[in-house]
């Protein structure tokens, strides 16, 4: 059962905030979703436990590009969509 305290913690992780009426709604929603996905707990675990998720297969190879310079976004393009920017830098509220 998800309660207020858990929702506060999740909101912190999600970088979201909810007002008083929104909190009640999100608690109800989250509980109905978690109850729904909890059906997964009915699956017999014996078979699932055998599955190794961290197995290394020779079929899988990382597909890295060569580390060579190439045309990319210009600085002016990269900052273009920011609300405030100056001289190619993002301007935000003081961090420290």
């Amino acid at each position: 059962m998800i309660e207020n305290k858990t929702v506060e913690k999740l909101a912190q992780l999600s970088q979201l905030e909810f007002n008083a009426s929104e909190i009640n709604e999100i608690i109800l929603d989250l509980n109905s979703i978690v109850q729904f996905v909890d059906n997964l707990q009915a699956i017999p675990t014996a078979e699932l436990e055998k599955i190794q998720l961290d197995r290394v297969s020779s079929d899988f190879k990382n597909d890295f590009n060569e580390d060579t310079p190439h045309v990319s976004l210009s600085i002016s393009e990269a900052v273009k969509n920011s609300k405030t920017h100056s001289d190619g830098e993002f301007i935000v509220t003081k961090v420290l």
């Binding site: 992780l13 999100i26 929603d29």
Partner: peptide
């Protein structure tokens, strides 16, 4: 969107 972000953080926590 907010619901799914919250659920996502829940199942990963």
């Amino acid at each position: 969107v907010k619901r799914r972000i919250m659920v996502g953080n829940y199942v990963l926590s």
